[in-house]
């Protein structure tokens, strides 16, 4: 039963992801992205990683996608934008990338099967273990991630200013 849940979730994730990359309206695409992320959260749960599943929902589906939504609303991507997307997305454009990426996918699947990796343990690795490892051997990685986030914060603040690099406009 639980195994079937995995395949269902995988199917949903694949389908919604296809929809994400093909939609013309950014807001619609974002909703599908949320669906995709949620179904992956289910898979995480089934893989015995409840903490990661929670993070997937809270941070990915919650924070990051909401950030996207804000920007989409700020830029006011309405019908005009959808028209433009129709111009940009001619069907012929899909062929080249699809072939390239298809080759890549086949190769990856080949490599995966070749290695015969076996199955998951079916055991849950809870938040406690993750936390112990995170603030034990991975402490340095945590510090690095903290620094990265700080840098991103400053960068985003700088980039988000209204008239970047144009002092005269800023002054007037």
């Amino acid at each position: 039963m639980a195994l079937a849940l995995f395949y269902i979730a995988a199917a949903v994730a694949l389908a919604s992801t296809v929809l994400v990359i093909t939609r013309r309206n950014a807001a619609h695409a974002l909703i599908y992205l949320v669906v995709s992320l949620l179904s992956i959260a289910v898979i995480f749960f089934l893989l015995g990683a409840p903490f990661a599943a929670a993070l997937e929902i809270v941070i990915y589906a919650g924070a990051i996608v909401v950030l996207f939504l804000f920007v989409v609303m700020m830029l006011n991507l309405g019908r005009r934008s959808a028209e433009r997307e129709r111009l940009w997305l001619r069907p012929g454009m899909w062929i080249g990338p699809a072939i390239l990426v298809g080759v890549l996918l086949l190769e990856m699947l080949y490599v995966i099967v070749l290695d015969a990796p076996g199955t998951t343990r079916g055991a849950v690795v809870g938040p406690k273990e993750v936390g112990t490892a995170l603030f034990g051997p991975y402490l340095l990685a945590v510090e690095l991630a903290a620094m990265l986030l700080l840098a991103a914060l400053i960068g985003a603040y700088h980039l988000g200013r209204r008239y970047l690099g144009d002092r005269r406009e800023e002054l007037s």
């Binding site: 639980a2 990796p117 079916g122």
Partner: peptide, 17 residues
Amino acid sequence: TVPVIPIEHVLALAAAL
């Protein structure tokens, strides 16, 4: 309890995504 899932299926999904 969580199910035992063939790892190549998960990886195949990851590759597809």
